[in-house]
Nucleic acid binder design. Structure first.
Lengths: 305, 305
DNA sequence: GTTTTTGGATTAGCTGAACTAATGCAAGAG
DNA sequence: CTCTTGCATTAGTTCAGCTAATCCAAAAAC
């Protein structure tokens, strides 16, 4: 169908509602003749008639009735979507997508200072491991690991991420942990959130390889599907976990966790802030980003010290 | 949203597909400037932007992407429906809705002569007891009982319908059936297709009342939910059924059924031919109607004789 | 580093699609 | 029988949306 006749379809819906061209014309601020002409042209273009004309009354043909019904829903849905999109534009709530472990162990403890700085800002944290997709999901911004698959977006690097074993002080006292080779004797705690199916123990395997430790079979480790749970297990003295800096730094500084070895490896992961290019200049987005950058700077200082 | 911008939405879908105004313009046989203007106006009217403009490339905003997806489906559905309606118009197949019992016992035996008269005519019989609704169902015409609830339609009376007991000759021999009062002693066969829930034995009750017979409890009858099954049961000697003229006349003439009593009551039912006003003049509809009227005339003669 | 190409933005001016206004017609109400 | 009502039709008008031409700036080509 010729898309030029689309407005006629709207006229048709109104005329079908009233079963009167005169009333439809009134509703649409047109003359009766205009409506009559539009319907005639529309019928011509569609190739079938929509109304049966009588003396001074109209009746829908079966085809006309079916089309009218379809169009009524179509227009309602369209109006609904547009309304929704407009509300979204006006919304002051920023939805930030974050990995769950990063959310609980790094973001949460720091959120207080964001509220202090911008009391009016409404931030909604959406913690999940799904691939970020700004088109599909109603997300305004995200913190992601390393790369973003979804099209082009505005990204800002926030942190780099180091990996090393951690355990509780109590656990360290009860077990000999002088060199990485001692890991043979102790329970390992694994986080398989990243390579769950392909190679669940990849994290430990990579670290042990870099530390040139042989003979440790990480597959005997207990395994969690979220990084924060693995840290939690280490905190409660269950064994040795592989910690990522941002997830364990606070606990190390407070003495609840310790690093038994010196070996620390950069695993190439970067935490990025990301948002659709278009949202880049929205004020609340800027506020969140600036705050995140300040927190990262503060955090880097703490790590360095 | 202003319905005047509807054609712009189509332009938008094409532009979103190509992520290029120039290519969209080419597809739509417009100039690049026209597309650019349409999108600008559309964004203005919607109140949010659809594309992020770069150097010489475009990107959809999250809102634009969602709108484009919705519109793509919307247009596809609309085109689909219109195509379907066009095919319907071109169709030479006439779908006739009939009550199942009338279809099997009256219409079927006579259809042969319709094919003889109009070998090219394609008739599809839709036998069901649903209320006829030309708008909702893909029906071109119908044979209905007495009245039509669905809006205005073109109707032509075909037959009137009389009601009286019938049984097989064998059954009549084995049972005394001189007056209606003798019905006390024999199995009754009931057809509850019309008043199933409210009053399943209404047909017998009404007939017995008109015949002024007392003391017969029709509720002991065996009951069928279709009129033709009740007749079938009578044919095979199961008992006495209440026959409607068009359903049993052929069998009576052939001697397979007989009327034990003289009492015949008009129950006010009329069989109507009905079709949407608009279809009234379509040639195949006319052919079917004319044939039906001829058959009815022939049938009336047979009944009278 | 300069030139060319490419693709979107913008503008003035044109044009025809769709509107109005006026009239005709025929059915049904009064 | 007359009046009212509501759709059809037509001639004439108007403005929404088009073209065409120009501008601009990034990126590709040289």
């Amino acid at each position: 169908m010729n898309k030029a006749s689309l407005p006629f379809l709207h006229t048709f819906v109104v005329a079908a509602k009233h079963l009167s061209f005169t009333k439809a014309a009134h509703e649409l601020f047109l003359t009766q003749g205009a409506v009559s002409q539009q319907i005639r042209l529309l019928e011509q273009r569609l190739g079938f008639s929509l109304f049966v004309r009588y003396h001074r009354s109209l009746e829908l043909t079966p085809m006309g009735a079916r089309l009218a019904l379809h169009l009524r829903h179509m227009f309602a849905d369209l109006d609904g979507l547009i309304e929704e999109l407009r509300e979204e534009r006006d919304s002051t709530i920023i939805t930030l997508s974050v990995m769950p472990s990063f959310a609980t162990r790094w973001l949460m403890p720091r959120l207080g200072r964001l509220q202090e700085r911008h009391p009016g800002l409404q931030l909604r944290i959406q913690a999940n491991d799904r691939e970020v997709n700004f088109t599909r999901d109603r997300i305004d911004a995200a913190i992601v690991h390393s790369h973003l698959h979804s099209g082009s977006a505005y990204t800002v690097p926030l942190l780099v991420d180091h990996v090393f074993p951690v355990c509780s002080p109590a656990f360290a006292e009860q077990n000999t942990l002088q060199t990485p080779a001692d890991l043979v004797h102790v329970p390992l705690i694994n986080d398989d959130s990243e390579w769950r199916f392909f190679s669940p123990y990849a994290a430990w395997e990579a670290w042990l390889a870099k530390a040139q430790v042989k003979g440790v079979r990480p597959s005997r480790a207990m395994s969690f599907n979220r990084g924060d749970l693995a840290v939690q297990a280490a905190l409660s003295g269950q064994g040795v976990a592989l910690g990522r800096t941002p997830l364990v730094m606070d606990d190390i500084r407070e003495g609840r966790l310790l690093k038994p070895f010196e070996q620390v490896y950069d695993n190439g992961h970067v935490y990025l802030f990301a948002c659709p290019n278009e949202y880049r200049d929205r004020e609340p987005i800027q506020q969140v980003l600036n705050w995140l950058q300040d927190e990262c700077r503060r955090y880097m200082d703490e790590v360095a010290q």
